[in-house]
Computed example of a mutant assay.
Amino acid sequence: MLSAQRKDHLRQILRRDGRVVAKDVAADLGVSEDSIRRDLRELADAGELVRVYGGALPIPPADRPVDQRASLATESKERVARRAVGLIPLNSTIVLDAGTTTLAMTRVLPHGADLTVITPSPTIALAVAEHSDARVVIIGGELSRFSMVASGPLAMEAVQHLAADLFFLGVTGIDPVHGLTTGNLDDAATKRAIAARCTQTYVLGSEEKIGATSRCPVLDLDAVSGLVVDPHDTSPVIGALAERVSVLR
Results as ranks from 00 to 15, higher is better:
56 A>S: 08
7 K>N: 10
173 G>M: 11
241 L>N: 02
230 D>C: 07
72 L>T: 05
116 T>G: 02
146 F>E: 13
85 V>D: 04
15 R>S: 15
1 M>E: 04
229 V>I: 14
235 S>H: 03
106 T>P: 00
166 L>F: 11
169 L>C: 12
196 A>L: 05
112 G>C: 07
110 P>D: 09
30 G>T: 05
120 P>K: 04
18 G>L: 03
136 V>Q: 08
192 R>L: 05
89 P>S: 05
28 D>Y: 01
110 P>W: 04
120 P>R: 00
55 G>F: 01
242 A>V: 07
221 L>E: 01
80 V>T: 03
153 P>I: 14
168 F>G: 14
73 A>L: 06
176 P>Y: 12
73 A>M: 10
74 T>L: 13
158 A>P: 07
106 T>G: 10
124 I>K: 02
90 L>F: 11
45 D>L: 13
75 E>H: 09
165 D>W: 06
176 P>K: 09
144 S>C: 13
204 L>H: 02
158 A>T: 10
86 G>C: 06
221 L>F: 01
184 N>D: 15
245 V>G: 05
128 V>W: 10
19 R>F: 03
45 D>A: 14
134 A>N: 03
184 N>I: 11
89 P>Y: 05
106 T>K: 03
221 L>P: 04
58 P>S: 03
151 S>H: 14
126 L>P: 10
92 S>V: 05
139 I>H: 12
75 E>A: 07
245 V>N: 05
186 D>T: 09
189 A>I: 15
51 R>T: 11
